[in-house]
Design a protein around this nucleic acid. Structure first.
Lengths: 216, 216, 216, 216
DNA sequence: GAATAATCGAGACGGTACGTCTTGTCTTACT
DNA sequence: AGTAAGACAAGACGTACCGTCTCGATTATTC
């Protein structure tokens, strides 16, 4: 997948590429995505909305799917969930992370874009790889690191595979609910963390948590 | 979503709709899906391969996504994972279920189709609802029932929400690995179940863990 | 071209064919022709408008073009111009014939149908043959007979070829003006007859005729 | 003194339209027309044969009938019959003109195209107007001019209407024979001119009519 | 009368073409 | 060289129509 945002030679012959055009294109892509969804995306419409020529779009991105991938990767779609703070209480931290994501996904226009990301990943191996590399694996690693630390601290079963698989289970559950249109509520966040981390949860720590009934 | 396989009035006026044509269309869709993937699906090609006219395709299905949905729902794509046998050992049963799915997804042509299902669900609310209703919610319920039984048996934390969320976490983890192209191996199956069900602790430890948590 | 209006065996087994249906089909064809023109003709619409099934249409007529041909031949389109009365004055008789045709073609809905006849003849050799046989050759013969009689009477140059060619010239001129949308007025009728019969016109006879300025 | 130059295309922005593509489309249309006739014309086939996209066809021509019209107007179909030479003998000149047309129409592939022109004109008012403007009215005017000159020379009845109507009668007779599939022979050409221009009357009769010297 | 058979309206069928839309490339003139 | 505009080849879309086939229902004739 082509990606050369920074010119190799800062001063080269001819007109310099317009970052403004690129930003406008990504913004227009996001708008189109929210308005029409992934399958109705039209490069013509994006270019027109961005006030750019089609060639400019294709100069930056080799294909529509790459454009969508960059739109997501470039932070135009997903806020940063690469950080899982360590407060000492892993369940609290995970809960907050999932709650943050749930809150983010509840903002208008966000769900269509997340589903577009899923659709793009489903359709193209390259996009999937690129998106995994820059987005999901980052979140997965952040969760995994936090879980590993918790394992060392005795809050959870120790071991790298467990941390990795739990991370994937958490992200997967979120993904599943996005695709099935099940709501991502704060209650869901709590219940999810309680469930997947609940097996070895010390009763004391359990008491600390607000149980809040899980939405379906 | 259009769906009228069973005539409401057994004595319709015109020629009866050909179930054979419908079956041929679904079969051709499956073949196309395996060969080219969801985004390259062509109704022209499907109709030609099925020996059907395009109008016949559109008489049965209003859009490509609905066709794919019916292809999956109709059992043309997903073998039956609606059953989770109860051997008494929930971890064993879940492991076997995930292993079976992993093995199924490893068959040639299956992954593209599963990704197509994800893409179709991502693109259309209606298809997502229809697919959830007939496919994923069925698997989810099967897993959930088994987990609930395990909760009653004291093998896992009790409570309906826990069973539901663990089911979604398991399905979600599988979905996540399908979309990210991470391999679904038997080892993955084992590690996933161990992780979300509280590690591979011996039955004694298991008994230790589940004294009946705080409610639900 | 298939044509079996009269059953070979007046009493055969089974239900008798409905002449009412056939008449309704021709009437609906005429209406469609006037409303939409020849190229927009739809057998589906004709059948629906006639309250008939498509098969009934195709039981009577092998194809759309044959239907149009029969519609015209059967008198649903063209009134009878097979008669050229003989008053003794050939110019007067021709003038009246052309005037009658001009008047007929000026009736609402007639021109589209005449043009449809031309289009049908242009597109199909069979239809052209059938239409020539039943319609134009009849008119041509009627004109030709009258002209031949005039030749014998010394009013025009004698000879069969002259009569035939003049007939074709008269019909052709009318056809030309229909296709080019030039108006068919009474003045045109007079001027046409004066022009093509004018070469050997005795001055006395000329004075008898109202010259009336020819519309273009 | 400055002469402000106005470019024909005052700086159009995008790629210039390809006249080559247009020519290829017209050529392919002509070939299709000869091969299959007007009603079997397929824009898909034309585009494929021209090596052009369908959109390019529709960018130039709004509909099939307009394409056919341009094909004819552009000289791809009708050789030039806009000239009627003046040898002094009007019957000779007309005879030659009709003979030339008869010869042209006898060439293989010409008749289907002429009938297509008639069908296109019959089906569309716009096409009829366009075709009359560029093709038939030109021929009509050429004949008319020659006839008017003959009128002034005393070879025929004088008067503009007579010239016009005779022209229309000649073209109409030719059109009639094309649509009815009657052959256009040299004999027909001679007989037609003789008939509409007052028969093959002997020079004496001719002298009677035309006081001016008829000869050369 | 009962059986048989051709017709009827209705409408699905396999095909073909339509005219539109979209993709990714290419070609203009302008900056 | 980069840019906005937009034409280009290719090909899928969803609709319309053709002429055929198949329904259940409706007349007729023949047994």
């Amino acid at each position: 997948m082509h990606q050369s945002r920074v010119p190799v030679h800062p001063s080269r012959r001819g007109r310099t590429r317009s970052e403004a055009a690129r930003a406008a294109i990504l913004q227009a892509t996001r708008d189109e995505l929210i308005a029409n969804g992934y399958d109705k995306l039209s490069v013509d419409r994006i270019a027109a909305a961005a006030g750019a020529g089609k060639q400019t779009v294709y100069r930056w991105y080799p294909a529509k799917s790459a454009l969508v991938a960059d739109c997501i990767i470039g932070g135009y779609l997903l806020a940063d969930f690469a950080e899982v703070p360590d407060s000492g209480d892993v369940r609290l931290d995970l809960r907050n992370w999932v709650r943050a994501f749930a809150g983010y996904s509840g903002q208008p226009g966000t769900s269509p874009v997340l589903r577009a990301a899923a659709a793009a990943a489903a359709e193209s191996d390259e996009v999937a790889a690129r998106m995994y590399e820059h987005v999901t694996s980052v979140a997965e690693a952040a969760l995994s690191d936090r879980l590993r630390a918790a394992g060392h601290a005795g809050q959870l079963p120790d071991g790298s595979p467990v941390a990795t698989l739990l991370s994937q289970a958490i992200i997967g559950a979120v993904l599943y609910r996005i695709l099935t249109r099940l709501p991502l509520t704060a209650d869901f966040a709590d219940a999810l963390v309680n469930s997947v981390c609940g097996g070895s949860q010390p009763p004391a720590a359990s008491a600390q948590l607000a149980p809040g009934p899980a939405g379906r």
